[in-house]
Design a protein around this nucleic acid. Structure first.
Lengths: 145, 145
DNA sequence: TTGAAATAAGATAAAAATAGTCTTATTTTT
DNA sequence: AAAAATAAGACTATTTTTATCTTATTTCAA
């Protein structure tokens, strides 16, 4: 139903917080308190962001998380892809051959939906974490296909 | 995970088919055969489109479905809203006060996500069923907020 | 006027995805 | 060695989506 998951919501909130505060280390516990998020869920989310190199961590006491790159270089799309997987508006647009729609229909939708999906992706690729923090939204050019 | 539901997929496929063929009545059985879709699921989907006045029907023998308006006047957004409900990227953007995020967080996300959602909606509002049929995609202006 | 073919409507079940919780292991500092 | 943190994975619960089934109603035509 055209919705981002809670994982993405948590991820953006946490990363946005880290991007807009001066300290350099943030524990999961601190972030979950500060943002009123479930500790367990946030911790699990952070680990996925780590694996995708969007966030780095220091283990042990005095450990915590920090952004792996400047906020301006982290696209919303990076976070979404990491936590929700590549968006696929419908199966027919999937790269996965098992979901290939050619078999089920003459796939009248494939091309049009692919173009629409491209536009949606452009929005998330065209918006960085920095833009979110700064409430700075640039014009997004959606090309004519 | 930023995805349209199967209902929407079925709805667009069926309506697109009706828009691009010369006959004027299409039974659910015929459409399900032609497009290789589950009859039951399609039938239920059609009923929702009826209620939203996107599709009209004639009951009884010789009955069937037909578009309630020209394809050019049916926005993709109409179909999505009817079958999936209004898109809400995250709860915080919901009009439903129960989902109001202010209580849970300082809602640093509200405004940015609302703007992004507006852009996504613009894509679906800016594309008509006719555009889909004609593979005709106009430039979509996303204003600067 | 009755049977057949279609839509209408709603109940229910099954499956899949998402969200939430818990436990244990590992790392690092003091 | 203890404490505080991340890492990892198993597991459960909940919600959403998808699928199926049943019954009722409408309409046409023999």
């Amino acid at each position: 139903m055209l919705r981002l998951s809670k994982k993405v919501e948590y991820g953006i909130l946490a990363m946005q917080y880290m991007a807009s505060h001066p300290e350099d280390l943030y524990t999961a516990k601190y972030l979950s308190n500060e943002l009123h998020l479930s500790y367990d869920f946030l911790a699990k989310t952070m680990q996925k962001l780590i694996k995708a190199d969007l966030v780095d961590s220091q283990q042990g006491t005095k450990g915590g998380y920090f952004l792996a790159r400047p906020a301006s270089e982290i696209k919303l799309m990076d976070i979404i892809e990491t936590l929700d997987g590549r968006p696929e508006l419908v199966d027919c647009v999937s790269d996965n051959p098992d979901k290939d729609c050619e078999k089920k229909t003459s796939c009248l939708l494939h091309d049009p939906i692919k173009m629409i999906q491209k536009k949606v992706e452009d929005i998330f690729t065209g918006t960085s974490l920095g833009d979110i923090v700064e409430h700075n939204f640039v014009e997004i050019e959606t090309k004519n296909y």
